[in-house]
């Protein structure tokens, strides 16, 4: 091995440190920002009139982001699995259906999709189906359950259109992941299921999909992480998730850096725990 030139390394390192100090000094003098981290904790939790600790804006937004990501990931996996299967079928109509969905959902900006779904589903469909009314007329416990699982009854229609948009958008990517997984399964598995007389549903349910999900778990996790991150765009239709709350607090306090750094950390905690969980699950899975 060639002898290492430590002198050169040292010089480069010192030069970098000096450059860093210079930039820091320049920014410090030109950048008059008074940090106020002390103002942040009150946005996590607050103490109400009767002295109870209540979640405040940031935590409420955090919960909404979790709920929204959970339901839309779940819906995306269901839509994506169905469409991924359709995409690999022999039947031309099935293939066209799958392909059309994937291409439309993948080749449209999600922001545009959100507007379409918001004005279409949020304003018309939910009203036509009476979902709004149903949510408003729920009993006390019913409202409690709805709030816990989804969102406040009066915002349920918006929540649904956000959920639906994210599910449709992410579902297209899930469909492609599932298709890849399906194509990696040996033909013999399909043939053996056929020869044993299994119905098409049983074939996928017991033989094919369990193998597919094991193979694509890492990619699916990546897609779920994307869903969490992409969920921030629904702030545009006033879903009170993490990013929306951040903008609200920023508008009233001007704590630009503190707020966005805090929110970045919160997203990071969420996505990191998800990928840690997935790694743990992968390790636990039976090796065959």
């Amino acid at each position: 091995m060639k002898k290492h030139n430590y002198l050169l390394d040292g010089i480069i390192l010192i030069a970098l440190i000096l450059a860093g100090i210079l930039v820091f000094i320049r920014v410090k003098t030109g950048f008059s920002y008074t940090w106020n981290w002390g103002a942040i904790p009150q946005f996590f939790f607050r103490i109400d009139e009767s002295g109870n600790i209540k979640s405040n804006l940031l935590m409420l937004g955090f919960y909404t982001t979790i709920k929204l990501s959970f339901w839309s990931s779940l819906a995306a996996i269901i839509i994506g699995t169905l469409m991924g299967i359709l995409r690999t079928r022999k039947n031309l109509f099935s293939r066209l259906t799958g392909r059309t969905y994937i291409e439309i959902a993948r080749n449209t900006p999600p922001l545009v999709l959100i507007f379409i779904f918001y004005f279409f589903i949020g304003n018309n469909i939910t009203a036509a189906l009476g979902i709004d009314e149903w949510a408003r007329n729920l009993s006390g416990t019913g409202k409690g359950i709805l709030s816990f699982l989804f969102s406040k009854p009066e915002r349920f229609a918006e929540f649904l259109s956000a959920l639906f948009t994210l599910a449709v958008y992410e579902g297209a990517y899930v469909a492609e992941i599932i298709r890849g997984g399906l194509e990696s399964i040996q033909k013999g598995q399909f043939e053996a299921s056929y020869a044993l007389g299994l119905s098409s549903t049983d074939k996928y349910r017991f033989v094919i999909l369990p193998q597919v999900f094991r193979k694509v778990l890492p990619s699916l996790t990546g897609q779920a992480i994307s869903t969490i991150k992409d969920s921030s765009i629904v702030s545009i239709i006033s879903i009170q998730e993490l990013t929306f709350q951040g903008m609200e607090i920023m508008a009233s306090t001007y704590l630009v850096f503190e707020i966005w750094i805090t929110i970045t950390a919160m997203y990071f905690i969420l996505t990191l725990s998800l990928s840690t969980l997935a790694t743990f699950l992968e390790g636990r899975m039976i090796k065959y």
Binding site: G188, A192, A195, L196, G197, L198, S199, Q211
Partner: peptide, 30 residues
């Protein structure tokens, strides 16, 4: 398909199932 059994060159057992589950699946479901 029910009345004709088939054995393949490449076995085609279901790799994620035990021997018991491999044999039992169609017996239970079909």
């Amino acid at each position: 398909r029910k009345e004709v059994g088939m054995v393949f060159q490449s076995f085609n057992l279901f790799p994620h199932m035990t021997v018991r589950e491999n044999i039992g699946l169609a017996v239970r479901r079909v």
